[in-house]
Nucleic acid binder design. Structure first.
Lengths: 335, 335
DNA sequence: TTGTACGCGTTATCAG
DNA sequence: CTGATAACGCGTACAA
């Protein structure tokens, strides 16, 4: 690999002069600058960012931690982050945790060792105490699609209560009286918020609130299928289900299919996230859309602003969800 | 951030001793080693990999270039790469190109500047001449799910000809005589291979080969819908379509729906890739499955083997595809 | 405008 | 077994 020393030798100048030329410094004559720049190009010089980072204390990369890159929800966030980072010349180190806390901590250490300039945490498992440690580490970070109870940390989220309301009210407006809720893990903020909005709406409307019709599982299709089977094979089954994400909804759809229930005739179904496949021809899932890519962009740009010194002290962005009505919801059939 | 110098001072030894302790070197007494290790832990020391990378000439990270992380096909590959890298203590820098060649080159330079240890190219746009340059750069790389004509480069692919055969023969076996093919970009190797297998099967079986029934588009649902509309609204329409990936197939499904055609009654449809959503309740797409995650793992492990000195000179892995028959294919209706 | 000298945090080499 | 010392490639005060 060619270094600035090589260029310096070839050009008959000092390495510092080459450095100045390559960094477009004003304290160098225009002609030597251009001469050196051309030479560098011709020699195929690529700056060593390890060395530069060592000096400047900044490597030019962001760390992104997500639970699962296969999940389109996080894929969209990732895309937003990556776009924003790329536009500003930064790299993105991708870390997936599978929801495993140990792995998350392991990755966090890896990223610190690599001296990334900032962290974007779209993961959910990390406990508050660890976040506290992170705050001391001086490396800027931002929470995406999650909050932290004890810690005051910058975040960008979508208003889950509002989203939960949109979904539940839509079902109630259609005339449903027997509405169940299927969430992700019960310790995940989003799960709880959507559930609490669901409860609030039911109680406002004077609809029955059954304990057995509030289920927490995990944010996967398999979990949705299992819960769906259980929920829909009871003698008294709900006429509508609000699922806390689209994957769960798809699993429930699968279970309904198995049990010979037609959607939306026998069962109305609302999901959450509007992942790309919710709009598929035969799926046509009614769902709550979140601006996921935008979340990623906002998060990345905030961290980069902090890194580059325009110090936004904090960030508390709450974006608005949007109900997307498709074909899995209808008034309840006469039964 | 605490450095080895800080630890050295605190322990009353030289920095080099600390370095030896932290690297578990044998040329240090067991007791000082342990003492220093404990001290480092207590001080919250995290090694600076920029400095380490500078002297060792290796940063401990892989660069991964994919066209689009939203596409489940590449998300799966990414997952495989990330898993393998994590297990061996490496990070992954994610780069998405949107199929834009300029962006790919830009990223390639970024990754070189960051001195990643190896490259995994799941992108398709890069031209052979550029690969040639890459070979000179001494940084090991591997092609995933693509080949290069002129250059002898390590690769891991799935046998597209075999996959194309599986799909086309399945349709022919069902009795279809009017089979169309919809590919991705015509300059993509996978597209061409699947198409050529399609042609071979048709000619072997003595089935009519219509020029208008071979269409190249792009690997997206939108493209599939457009092509589907055109193909299916002709007076003489095919009774079966082999789509070169699942997204295209889904688009075609959408178009068929719009035109009032039932699947598989009026139209049989085979996709390619078996992305997670092909198995969805109402989609149930017959498709050709590729071991995507495995490809990612094999690719990453190969590059890492090279990096770590166990020098596999080359890699030419051809994995086998698998036909997954679901509910979008059936014998042609009487017409 | 340019060159010199030093430091960033680590590892490796060579004495001791 | 341990301690100096140099080197990795670059940026930057300081001197010229």
């Amino acid at each position: 690999m060619v270094t600035i020393k090589d260029i310096a030798k070839a050009a008959g100048v000092a390495p510092s002069t080459v450095s100045r030329a390559l960094n477009d410094s004003p304290l160098i004559s225009v002609e030597t600058k251009r001469r050196i720049q051309r030479l560098a190009q011709r020699l195929g010089y690529e700056r060593n960012e390890l060395a530069r980072g060592l000096v400047k204390g900044s490597f030019g990369a962001l760390g992104l931690i997500v639970p699962d890159i296969i999940n389109p929800f996080f894929a969209e966030i990732t895309k937003g982050v990556e776009e924003a980072a790329r536009e500003r010349g930064f790299g993105v180190v991708l870390c997936t945790t599978e929801g495993d806390e140990a792995r998350e901590e392991e990755y966090l250490r890896l990223l610190q060792r690599k001296r990334v300039d900032g962290l974007i945490l779209a993961s959910v498992t990390l406990d508050d105490p660890y976040l506290q440690k992170l705050q001391h580490s001086k490396i800027p970070f931002v929470l995406v699609s999650r909050l932290s109870k004890g810690i005051e940390a910058p975040y960008v989220v979508v208003d889950d209560k509002k989203g939960g309301r949109l979904a539940t009210e839509h079902l109630a407006d259609l005339g449903h009286k027997h509405i169940a809720f299927v969430g992700g893990p019960s310790n995940v903020h989003a799960s709880r918020e959507r559930m609490s909005a669901y409860r609030a709406v039911l109680s406002e409307r004077g609809l029955p609130l059954k304990r057995e019709w509030i289920v927490f599982a995990s944010f996967t299709q398999e979990a949705g299928r299992e819960v769906g089977r259980r929920l829909l094979s009871q003698s008294e089954r709900p006429t509508a289900i609000f699922a806390a994400n689209d994957l769960i909804a798809l699993g429930i759809m699968e279970a309904a299919e198995e049990l010979g229930l037609r959607i939306p005739d026998d069962l109305s179904l609302v999901g959450y996230n509007d992942i790309a496949y919710a709009g598929l021809p035969r799926i046509q899932l009614t769902t709550v859309a979140q601006p996921m890519r935008e979340m990623g962009q906002i998060a990345a740009n905030f961290v980069l602003d902090v890194v580059e010194g325009r110090k936004h002290a904090s960030l508390a962005a709450v974006l608005a969800p949007r109900l997307v009505v498709r074909r899995t919801t209808a008034p309840p059939g006469r039964s």
